[in-house]
């Protein structure tokens, strides 16, 4: 390989490792790594040059729950929460929505047809049982718990709005474990487009940090009627 080509490869490998390469360029480079040994060897060499930098970082012991969740993901232990947990990953990376939300919207439409424009969402478990029905009209959320909700005495279910602009989730309040509850739409969420709703399991009284701290159990999309 010519000297100049190696120079170029070095520069590309470093951009790749540092994350300076984006989108299509990154994918093309990954393809090149698979196809050309010289390319991937250059990347490996630079990884070995740079990764010792991370050695200087003082270790931060992660929460023991992380090890639990890894074992759950590998199927070694059963989930510990009462409902099948959805990992944060699906909330943050994919926002994979239940296809059945659309169906639920159709079913609910007759009930709501006499009302002005409404946003609704149905929060349901992975076995397709509806846990909560949520409707939003103006600045008010009306939430109805179904009998399917698994009673939690030590914890509360907290509802979050995930803004479409990618900013941090905004708490909408605690979900009722039975019956109906009304929540007012928070000021902070005013005027923001909604990517999805999420429900996390939190200590009683809700997350103290203002961000979800427990496992995210459900996500749901909002449907406008």
């Amino acid at each position: 390989m010519k000297y100049q080509q190696q120079e170029l490869l070095d520069a590309l490998a470093v951009d790749f490792i540092l994350g300076a390469m984006r989108g299509g360029a990154r994918r093309r480079f990954q393809q090149l790594m698979m196809a050309r040994p010289a390319v991937r060897e250059t990347v490996w060499r630079w990884e070995q040059h740079l990764n010792p930098l991370a050695e200087g970082l003082p270790p931060t012991p992660p929460n023991p729950a992380v090890w639990q969740r890894i074992q759950q993901r590998l199927g070694w232990v059963a989930p510990t929460v009462s409902a099948p947990p959805v990992s944060y990953r699906s909330v943050w990376l994919g926002l994979a929505f239940a296809a059945s939300v659309a169906l639920a919207a159709v079913m609910l439409k007759p009930m709501l047809s006499s009302m002005p424009q409404q946003d609704i969402a149905m929060i349901q478990s992975s076995d397709a049982k509806a846990w909560w029905l949520i409707s939003k009209a103006q600045q008010k959320l009306t939430i109805k718990a179904t009998p399917a909700v698994a009673a939690e005495t030590a914890n509360d279910y907290e509802l979050w709005m995930l803004p479409a602009n990618g900013q941090a989730p905004i708490s909408l309040g605690l979900l009722p474990q039975q019956g109906q509850r009304e929540l007012s739409w928070p000021q902070a969420a005013e005027g923001l487009a909604i990517a999805a709703l999420a429900v996390s399991l939190e200590p009683r009284g809700g997350s103290a940090t203002g961000a979800p701290t427990g496992p995210v159990l459900f996500t749901a999309q909002i449907v406008t009627l």
């Binding site: 991370a54 970082l57 270790p59 931060t60």
Partner: peptide, 10 residues
Amino acid sequence: SGKLFSVSLH
């Protein structure tokens, strides 16, 4: 995991 968590956290 302590090292890798630091990397991720940074």
